[in-house]
Amino acid sequence: MAGLPLAAAAGTPSPGAVEQEGPSVPLLALDTLWFQVTGTICNLRCSHCFISCAPDNHAFGFLSLQEVEGWLEESRAYGVRDYYYTGGEPFMHADLPAMIEKTLELGPVSILTNGTVLPDHRVDPIARAARESRYSVEMRVSIDGPSPEMNDPVRGEGTFDRAMAGVRKLLDYGFLPIITAAQVWPPERDEEVRREFMTRLRGVGYDRPRLKILPRLKIGREQFRDRGYGPGERVTLEMMEDYDEAQLLCSSSRIVTSEGIFVCPILIERPAARMGYTLKEASRKFDISHKACYTCWLHGAICSNYGAAGRDAV
């Protein structure tokens, strides 16, 4: 990207007239391209869904197969490493199998699902394509606790049993799904919850369960106040000084939606997070002074390498 000197040469206001800039994160490389393939449309209506997905939320709509093919083609020149499918609920899209087949020609795929709508005529062709590809297809199933008592109040009545049946089905098709759980329990119950998860998953025949618990903040806010960060809970320039920006999703990915390309899956409801309508436009740096960025900054700091993996459950 053209840096400041060029912009200045092109006649932008002199440094004195430039407003104090907030912290921003450059797109270091487009490693991951996300497709919000079913928009905000989901068969569930989870209480903690940060983008308020629901059966009747049409704020963001479906992407068509042709659109996805177009983006895949455009993405090649960026050397994209992998592709993520999210929603809403991706399995509500009739063309999901065709999209996954097409994507696997280029690279690996992750699908973020709630596991409660997995019709055979969609799972089967994806399983076949996964077997034939050199690339992995990761199925990430969100279940927020190892029991209906813990999960259902958050995700809806009956969703625990339905998602576990989904896990069983994915196993039958040869997948090794990754169960992604938001840590909705107190930290002191961690060990116990993990054990219970393992028991439950083994109970449906998953003999080597893959479980990711999205970490909770292990560092109290006090620590940040000690270091002199303001009470505003915003990322500041100082906070970015010794920070490895590669830990933030926005340094390595973008998400395609029906309403254009956004900086990350978390901020799609913010108009300022719409980066444009081509990957080129969307490659500019992003001002991370949103409240959600502060949370992201904290999580990135504690989950290091797997920070991104810890954040991608929707």
């Binding site: 490693d31 050397g79 490493r81 280029l106 050199r134 690339y135």
Partner: peptide, 20 residues
Amino acid sequence: RRTNEFLWDSTSSTQFLDRL
């Protein structure tokens, strides 16, 4: 680009490796 980045066969697209 990173000492501790894992490059697996099944998660590294050819276009990505070419870029690196």
